[in-house]
Amino acid sequence: MLSWEIRVLLIVGALATMAFMFRKIRRAKIQIEYSVFWIIFSICVLLLSIFPQIAFWAVDVLGMQSPINVVYLIMIFVLFIKLFSVTAKLSEMESKLSKLAQHLAIEKAETETEHGEKEPENE
């Protein structure tokens, strides 16, 4: 059984997540692409807390003890996948960043040598 306390908590959490995302979008602080996951996630949590029957159905399918365990399991699973994809993205960003910095620095060095080495300025 999903207690009403848990359900209220889930609803509040989902609404807060959405509000936070929409505020970020309003201030142009986040790309829409990245907010989509959190919006879908919040909608799913909302649905689950409004219609806990979904959890009961999942209990039967997965052969688990109680609905709250299903809620935990699914959430941990989803967040695990998200964390994995964020790690992959982060690694990609880091290699792009170093490529970019190297490219810029080499280009700068090459244009500087083209113009001849500057005389060190005397004090």
Binding site: F22, I25, R26, A28, I32, S35, V36, I39
Partner: peptide
């Protein structure tokens, strides 16, 4: 999702 939900808040 972008057209239906997100654009309202921009």
């Amino acid at each position: 999702i972008s057209i239906l939900f997100v654009q309202w808040f921009r």
